[in-house]
Design a binder for these strands. Structure first.
Length: 271
DNA sequence: AGCCAGGACAAGT
DNA sequence: ACTTGTCATGGC
């Protein structure tokens, strides 16, 4: 099989390694040569950021059809970061961790991943997801498995998921698979509706509360006004923004949240 | 060894 | 409408 390559110039605010490993997605791995290897849908991609270019192990058509959207390639993050700089903490966070973009992952994978994330830590989340894919996904290439569809999971029983070691979350995964596969939670509707509709739909799933719903809407549906509040972001809000979030993030609350989350999680408090 | 983790839920005020 | 105990499991 021939290894295709496609190169493209990068926009200004773009850090591939950071955006793929800052708690949005859980399946990308950094290779020895610095490239990132991961799976989107039923394709394995190897991506390398080098000298202002992105080098992709795929064709131009696949980049335009899959990665351009996944990486939020065409949004002007430079302008966005500039708007955020009106706030002093965001100014620091965006400078220190410049180049984070909000990924647009597949909705089902996003939903399922953040159900698994609840009351859990990132290394453990990655392990559970990896075992989920190995156990129930399709092997695309040697050692690379797709994320199993809701239809694949919906008829499984709790015992079948024991291999995941996902604890109390197993029953939540099954309820989500059932409601999504049966259309009781309608992804097309969520995508084409205002965010409030998505919130109402997603929390119909057992084990999906406000936080998981916001994460799904942000990372899976591109609703950048979604604002997930996990323990870290709650600390940020209570310590730095006791009187409310800054006006400058309006409409892009989730983007600001991602910078602050990563900043705080990497040991920064007040600076 | 014990505490915590990108929470949600049910039961109790 | 707010607070609290509980839920599995693993990482550190």
């Amino acid at each position: 099989m021939k290894e295709e390559k496609f190169e493209i110039d990068l926009p200004e605010v773009f850090n591939l390694g950071l955006m793929l490993d800052c708690g949005q997605a859980f399946r990308w791995k950094k290779e020895a040569d610095g490239s990132m290897r991961g799976i989107v849908g039923d394709r394995v991609f190897s991506l390398l950021q080098k000298d202002g270019k992105l080098i992709c192990s795929c064709s131009r058509e696949e980049f335009n059809g899959v990665l351009r959207r996944y990486l939020d390639f065409d949004r002007d993050y430079k302008a966005l970061v500039n708007i955020f700089s009106a706030d002093k903490y965001l100014k620091k966070a965006t400078r220190e961790f410049s180049g984070i973009r909000i990924l647009r992952q597949q909705p089902w994978e996003t939903l399922c991943s953040f159900i698994i994330s609840q009351n859990n830590n990132i290394p453990s989340i990655k392990g559970i997801i990896e075992r989920l894919c190995q156990s129930f996904g399709e092997e695309i290439e040697e050692g690379c498995f797709s994320f199993p569809e809701a239809e694949r999971l919906k008829n499984l029983k709790i015992e079948d998921l024991a291999v995941l070691r996902s604890g109390f979350r197993a029953k939540y995964i099954l309820d989500a698979a059932e409601k999504v596969a049966d259309g009781e939670v309608d992804f097309d509707k969520i995508e084409s509706s205002p965010i409030e509709t998505g919130r109402e739909e997603l929390i119909k799933i057992k084990g999906v509360g406000k936080k998981v719903a916001e994460c799904t809407l942000l990372y899976g549906f591109g609703k950048l006004e979604a604002f997930p509040e996990d323990v870290w972001v709650k600390r940020i809000v209570s310590e730095m923004y006791p009187d409310g979030l800054p006006e400058c993030i309006k409409g892009y609350d989730g983007v600001a949240q991602q910078y602050l989350f990563h900043w705080r999680r990497n040991g920064k408090e007040f600076g």
